[in-house]
Design a protein around this nucleic acid. Structure first.
Length: 772
DNA sequence: CGCAGCGCTGTTTTT
DNA sequence: CAGCGCTGCG
């Protein structure tokens, strides 16, 4: 190794022994179990820098894969801060970004048109809808969303239509839809996200020369968030670096933070990787640099309840710190009010608002909190809303741009053929689609087949697009977009629209985004570097065109690719000092001085839909683990007795996760519930006071009656139970009565028994005793 | 063709 | 409750 030792020393300075071991591992397969806050990104980037600096690999021999653009950017930024390296030759990016790069280079071999465009999820949904319609299927039985899910799921398992196992008629039809969808994408020259992965995988698998070329090229592959990879992504990786070869795969992940099983992530890939690659060194990064002891103790104790683990325990040198504060509220509204007060106090004591995060399990919970913050005039930012390139007006504009690039993009055609309205109605489009279907051509190619007034209007639309294409020939991206905004009538339309001002601003912003895209440093690197794909590689000569040399694709096509691959930030005022509101999922990877985890209730967190199987519960627990480990100094957990959900008051019990946290690390801000139900008496009274619920309460059997307000005594029902009431069951223990149905012997009650779940009980059979 | 009103349905999400 | 998609009317 011909390096200046001084530089190497500087690079490795400050790493702890585990990190150092990971960073300086030899060229062998390695699995790094990186706990939350253990300096994972630092290890990843330092390793790349170290490999480069010590001359073990050249930039062109490095591939580093992440899941999100943000993570990829972060890696690039940190890397270039460490080393004055040309990041140019390195393949650092998201799985999909790298696949795009690969397919742009080898489009011909992959059987794609040169300027193929990428469908985002909403484009894909409308494409599937069209297929379902065209096949004359019932959308009730073949729900477009589910069909889309089926297609993406199949692709992510590596299955083409012919590979999918069919059990019944319904399955057979699904496969036919999948087939037709593929044919349609092919015809229109578009690919969806999963297709990017699958196509790349198949090309590597089937083309020996190409595969050998890339295997020779990439010496070091680094994978971030390995626990989130799906089957196809792992298979893809194995194509670039098969087990038992000399390439070094450096997989970094944390099985305890696997929270995406529901979308196909396979934690099992970690164990498979260890086995298949015969990993000798599993390095655990357990030193945590983020949180204080009580927070980590809570996280460790909680996650210890999961059975399926590789095993890992976080530790810190930071001391115990503050206790984890627990708050019980009477209602979601009260919870929000309390949280607001606490946040204000923190802020007054010097915590920046942006360092305060409010986490929740599902988006529906944000509303109450938002309104509390809004009314108090505290700035906040909600993550996960509509993102820039997903906004309707922006998508309209992009559709025009896509048509300029590719007239056969039917998805885009349908999106804007009558927007702004130009007298092209449903029946005209119907005729056009029939004609297109009959001739197997695109909509744009079929306009001639429609007669009458509709035909004229259609011809006018096609002429508009053609005109735009001709007029913008050779213009800059900025000019193209400006011209399109004018000619399409979008600007004019929104100018007369009541709420059009914001939309016009967004369209202006699109021009800026394009400008930024063109001038940004990375231009020409990712989407734009469009290599020459010289026919099929000459296997005999061993010459394969590589993805890093070649011609430039048009700025417009590059920009459209960028827009699909990176949906942009969500609109909220980034940068300003504001409380951060988000789901636990979107909090992954982030950290804050103070964190509120709200709605820690049975049915919500863990979510009721995840309770049907043990795996579901374990994923919920990992989710809670992720939430807890976001906090640096202060952590709050709160739950509420009642919550307005779907317009109905729900009566909740505190989450079972509280029983899994170390009592010594917690501080209850509200009186701890003693024995059965003391916490519920209040909710019941409140429910009564509000006039919801209401049939009254009678002590049944041996249990003493609750103190019943006089007004209620008159409305007793025969079973003596009411909604919101705490009850005791000999088998399931304490619970809260959610619903009452039927009369007399038919009366049934739905009860939330916390860890035993939601139960329907026949009152004539079940012994339910009210608890005070 | 466009709009108003009705009814249904509610986890988590990146690319 | 609230957002969406579909229907039916003008």
């Amino acid at each position: 190794m011909s390096i200046a030792p001084a530089t190497e020393t500087r690079l490795l300075q400050g790493l702890n022994p585990e990190q150092l071991a990971a960073v300086t591992l030899g060229p062998e397969p390695a699995l790094i179990l990186a706990g939350a806050g253990s300096g994972k990104t630092r290890v990843l980037t330092t390793r790349i820098a170290w490999l480069l600096q010590t001359g073990q690999v050249s930039p062109g021999g490095v591939m580093a894969v992440t899941f999100t653009n943000k993570a990829a950017r972060e890696m690039l930024t940190r890397l270039s801060a460490m080393l004055p390296v040309a990041v140019r030759g390195m393949w650092i990016g998201t799985f999909h970004g790298l696949c795009n790069r690969f397919l742009r280079a080898h489009w011909k071999l992959a059987g794609l048109p040169q300027g193929f465009q990428i469908l985002d999820s909403s484009d894909q949904l409308s494409a599937v809808k069209r297929v379902i319609k065209a096949m004359g299927l019932d959308e009730e039985r073949f729900v477009p969303k589910q069909v889309t899910w089926f297609i993406a799921g199949s692709k992510e398992e590596g299955l083409r239509p012919r590979d999918v196992e069919v059990r019944d008629e319904h399955g057979r039809t699904l496969v036919r839809v999948y087939e037709a969808y593929e044919a349609q994408c092919e015809r229109e020259g578009v690919v969806d996200f999963a297709e990017l992965m699958l196509r790349s995988y198949e090309l590597m698998r089937d083309n020996d020369a190409l595969r050998e070329h890339y295997q020779r090229r990439f010496r070091h592959l680094l994978v971030d968030e390995f626990q989130d990879t799906n089957r196809l992504q792992y298979a893809w990786l194995k194509m670039f670096a098969p087990p038992g070869r000399e390439q070094a795969v450096f997989a970094v992940g944390d099985d305890d933070q696997s929270i995406y099983a529901f979308r196909g992530a396979r934690v099992g890939n970690m164990a498979d990787f260890e086995r298949e690659y015969r990993v000798e060194r599993v390095v655990k990064l357990e030193q945590n640099y983020r949180s204080f002891g009580n927070i980590l103790d809570s996280a460790n104790a909680l996650i210890a309840h999961n059975r399926q683990r590789l095993g890992k325990n976080l530790r810190t040198d930071a001391g115990a710190g503050e206790p984890v504060r627990v708050h019980e509220a009477t209602s979601d509204y009260a919870e929000a009010q309390w949280l607001l007060d606490e946040a204000q106090q923190l802020h007054r004591a010097g915590t920046a608002l942006a360092e305060i995060a409010v986490l929740y399990r599902s988006n529906a919970q944000s509303r109450v909190i938002e309104s509390a913050l809004f009314n108090a005039g505290i700035p906040y930012r909600v993550y996960g809303g509509l993102r820039f390139f997903e906004r309707a007006e922006v998508k309209h504009a992009l559709a025009y741009l896509r048509l300029i690039e590719n007239a056969n993009d039917d998805t885009s055609f349908l999106r804007v053929v009558n927007f702004p309205t130009r007298g092209i109605g449903a029946r005209t489009i119907e005729q056009l689609q029939d004609a297109a279907r009959a001739s197997g051509r695109s909509l744009a190619q079929s306009v001639g087949a429609v007669a009458g007034r509709g035909g004229v209007a259609l011809a006018g639309f096609v002429a508009l697009i053609d005109g735009l294409r001709e007029r913008t020939q050779g213009q800059t991206l900025r000019e193209i977009i400006r011209q399109m905004l004018e000619d399409s009538g979008l600007i004019t339309f929104y100018r007369t629209d009541r709420e059009g001002q914001d939309r016009i601003e967004n369209l202006e912003e699109l021009v800026n985004a394009a400008e930024a895209f063109v001038t940004q440093e990375g231009f020409g690197k990712d989407a734009v570097a469009l290599p020459v794909d010289e026919q099929a590689p000459d296997a005999a000569a061993g010459v394969v065109p590589d993805a890093d040399t070649g011609e430039i694709m048009s700025p417009l096509a590059a920009f459209l690719t960028h827009a699909s691959l990176e949906a942009g930030d969500n609109q909220a005022q980034a940068g300003s000092d504001a409380v951060q509101l988000m789901t636990v999922h979107s909090a992954k990877g982030l950290e804050f001085d103070a964190v509120f985890i709200t709605g820690v209730e049975e049915g919500l967190f863990p979510h009721e839909n995840a309770l049907s199987d043990a795996d579901g519960l374990e994923e919920e627990r990992r989710l809670m683990y992720v939430a807890i480990t976001r906090a640096r100094q202060r952590l709050y957990l709160s739950f509420s007795q009642t919550r307005l959900l779907h317009g109905q008051t729900r009566y909740n019990v505190k989450s079972r996760f509280f029983d899994e946290l170390p009592e010594g690390a917690l501080k209850w801000l509200t009186p701890r519930q003693q024995g059965f139900g003391s916490g519920y008496a209040r909710s019941y009274q409140e429910a009564w006071a509000r006039g919801s619920g209401l049939s009254g309460i009678v002590g049944a059997g041996r249990v003493e009656p609750a103190p019943v307000p006089a007004a209620m005594a008159s409305s007793r029902s025969s079973h003596g139970l009411k909604v919101g009431q705490s009850v005791f069951h000999t088998k399931f223990g304490e619970g809260v009565l959610l619903t009452l149905e039927g009369e007399g012997d038919d009366a049934r009650a739905q009860v939330n028994f916390g860890r035993h779940g939601l139960k329907w009980l026949a009152l004539s059979v079940a012994k339910l005793t009210p608890i005070e």
